[in-house]
Computed example of a mutant assay.
Amino acid sequence: MIRVLVVDDEALVRSGLRLILEAAGDIVVVGEARDGAEAVAAVERLRADVVLMDVRMPGMDGLTAAERIIRRDDPPKVIMLTTFDLDEHVHRALRAGAVGFLLKDTPPRDLASAVRTVAAGNAMLAPTVTRRLIGSFVERGPSHAEAAHERFAVLTTRERQVVRAVARGLSNAEIGRELTMREATVKTHVSRALAKLGLTNRVQAAILVYEAGLL
């Protein structure tokens, strides 16, 4: 079972998310929190695999809470959930290490699928969010792209191939089939590449690939 912590300042929203997720059969909501501070405290107590976090909440907002949670040793995966796909929210959340960003109009089936995806170690972004991210990177100009491209010099050829595949949204198993590698070997390459690049997860690696113009 995938253990989820639901964080939203509205009780009705929390109840609805619980119903949707637990109806999936392989997901259990192990706790709820009303704001970012409660979420940070709950992570201390609960062994959640995934935190589903609203962006806008009174007191400590979801972005601040996500940043604090992700800095922990062996943190849960964090999915940001919001009504607005504002660029500053997306960038800050993903830079902090969130592995998912979904809009609140996401269909129930897709919400459960997103939780499964991030629990398995992959990223999940709403399609509109992905399009806006790519567009913003294209607009940053050649000097920014060149600086991002230079960061990949520390990687081996194989590591660069793997990271580019990660940016295309492929899972470890899919990368292994495409590059004729064992899944465990792919996982090793991903871990080493992230460490060399100073990144914490696959989403940040994908962002850097887009910034460098490698896709």
Results as ranks from 00 to 15, higher is better:
Met1Ala: 13
Met1Asp: 07
Val4Gln: 04
Val4Met: 07
Val7Met: 10
Asp8Val: 01
Ser15Asp: 15
Leu19Asn: 09
Glu22His: 05
Gly25Asp: 07
Gly25Thr: 01
Gly25Ile: 01
Ile27Glu: 01
Ile27Ser: 01
Val29His: 01
Val30Asp: 02
Val30Met: 06
Arg34Leu: 11
Ala37Glu: 15
Ala39Phe: 05
Ala41Pro: 01
Ala41Cys: 03
Glu44Trp: 03
Leu46Trp: 03
Leu52Glu: 07
Leu52His: 07
Leu52Ala: 03
Val55Gly: 08
Arg56Glu: 13
Arg56Lys: 14
Gly59Met: 09
Gly59Lys: 10
Asp61Arg: 04
Asp61Ala: 06
Leu63Pro: 04
Thr64His: 10
Ala65Gln: 10
Arg68His: 13
Arg68Pro: 03
Ile69Tyr: 10
Ile70Asp: 08
Asp73Gly: 11
Asp74Thr: 13
Pro75Trp: 13
Val78Ser: 13
Val78Asp: 12
Val78Trp: 08
Ile79Ala: 11
Met80Trp: 12
Thr82Leu: 08
Thr83Gln: 11
Asp87Val: 06
Asp87Ser: 08
Asp87Pro: 00
Glu88Ala: 06
Glu88Met: 04
Glu88Ser: 11
Glu88Cys: 00
Val90Glu: 03
His91Gln: 11
His91Pro: 00
Arg92Met: 06
Leu94Asp: 08
Arg95Thr: 07
Arg95Cys: 00
Ala96Tyr: 01
Ala96Asp: 06
Gly100Tyr: 06
Gly100Glu: 05
Leu102Gln: 06
Leu102Phe: 08
Leu103Lys: 04
Leu103Asp: 07
Lys104Gly: 10
Thr106Pro: 05
Pro107Trp: 11
Pro108Gln: 08
Arg109Met: 07
Ala112Gln: 09
Ser113Phe: 10
Arg116Ala: 12
Arg116Phe: 06
Thr117His: 09
Thr117Gly: 02
Thr117Trp: 06
Ala119Asp: 08
Ala119Ile: 05
Ala123Trp: 02
Leu125Ile: 04
Ala126Gln: 05
Thr128Asn: 09
Leu133Tyr: 05
Gly135Arg: 12
Arg140Cys: 04
His144Thr: 13
Ala147Lys: 15
Ala147Glu: 15
Ala148Ser: 15
His149Gln: 14
His149Tyr: 15
His149Gly: 13
Val154Phe: 05
Thr156Asp: 12
Arg158Ser: 12
Glu159Phe: 08
Glu159Cys: 11
Arg160Tyr: 00
Gln161Met: 14
Arg164Ser: 08
Ala167Pro: 02
Gly169Met: 07
Glu174Ala: 15
Gly176Ile: 01
Arg177Trp: 00
Leu179Ile: 07
Met181Arg: 09
Thr185Trp: 00
Arg192Trp: 01
Ala193Trp: 04
Ala195Thr: 12
Lys196Thr: 05
Lys196Asp: 05
Leu199Gln: 05
Leu199Phe: 05
Arg202Asn: 08
Val203Lys: 02
Gln204Ser: 07
Ala206His: 03
Ala206Gln: 04
Ile207Asn: 09
Leu208Gly: 02
Tyr210His: 14
Tyr210Ser: 12
Ala212Leu: 09
Leu214Asn: 07
Leu215Ser: 11
